[in-house]
Design a protein around this nucleic acid. Structure first.
Lengths: 141, 141
DNA sequence: AGCTAAGTGAGAAAAGTTATCCTTAAAAAC
DNA sequence: GTTTTTAAGGATAACTTTTCTCACTTAGCT
């Protein structure tokens, strides 16, 4: 797959948000996609391999620009640093407190949002759900 | 209600965890109880009124000691600084993205934990759920 | 190709958190 | 109740993380 085709989608996503398409941004988006969710630290380490002179400031600025334009989402995780992921269908996360693995899990968020007690008139627009526990691998090990 | 009776409970909670009972710690616990959940910043501002010379280091050290001994919990909140609360029965939180209000809501966490897809063998020990949206007051206003 | 606005990079600055070290106070021992 | 022991508090320095500034470069229009 050529670089042009591979990046096409991200270019469009950036343009739709009036964000200029730069190699750094394409790299950030590609890394987020590849890893699923990634911390700033890891992102910097990985992107520095491609753009050895990239500045941390650039990274922060871009990640925030992408959050503000609803391209990326910050996932806050109990007892861990935040990770960032491309916005996709609503889902929850599993955090293994033993090995630290962190992954997406498909959960009917709408149903969960319907579980607020009657009498609570809160209009939910989004919800964040992280299950902490022991992953299958660690249970076996 | 005398200070002795009021603090009795916290003293015991501290002693059970081999944490020395100090006025600063009692103050921290009291403030957490009163506010429900509070950020480090607010906690420092409020506790400084009682103990004008308290150090930020003391605050951080104590909050961490209390987290490690399962007396207090850090609540990570999308697009906000963490808040800290006394550990109590499992519950979720409501965050109003308009006025910033943040409150507890009673939700059957066990039921939610049972909603993981079949085939996902994850042993959940705890889960964190925050609903973001518009609170009742803001909907009316 | 040239213009303009936005983005990048380097470093400084600011915020937020943790570590060090000495003093003080709580709990245990007597 | 006094002494002894040990943990905790406070001040400050050191880190870590994030944001800001500004000169320079590049993307996207014309």
């Amino acid at each position: 797959m050529s670089a042009i085709i591979r990046f096409m989608n991200y270019e469009q996503l950036l343009r739709e948000r009036d964000l200029k398409v730069t190699p750094q941004r394409l790299g950030i988006l590609t890394l987020m996609h590849q890893s699923g969710h990634i911390s700033i630290e890891d992102l910097y380490e990985k992107i520095s391999r491609q753009f050895s002179s990239i500045s941390l400031a650039t990274l922060y600025k871009n990640v925030h620009a992408m959050i503000e334009t609803a391209l990326v989402k910050e996932v806050k995780i109990p007892s861990m640093k935040s990770k960032y992921e491309l916005i996709k269908a609503p889902h929850a996360h599993l955090l293994c407190t033993q090995c630290g693995s962190f992954e997406d899990v498909s959960v009917p968020m709408e149903q969960i949002e319907a579980m607020l007690p009657h009498g609570v008139h809160f209009k939910t627009t989004e919800s964040s759900l992280v299950f902490s526990g022991i992953c299958e691998t660690c249970q076996k090990g």
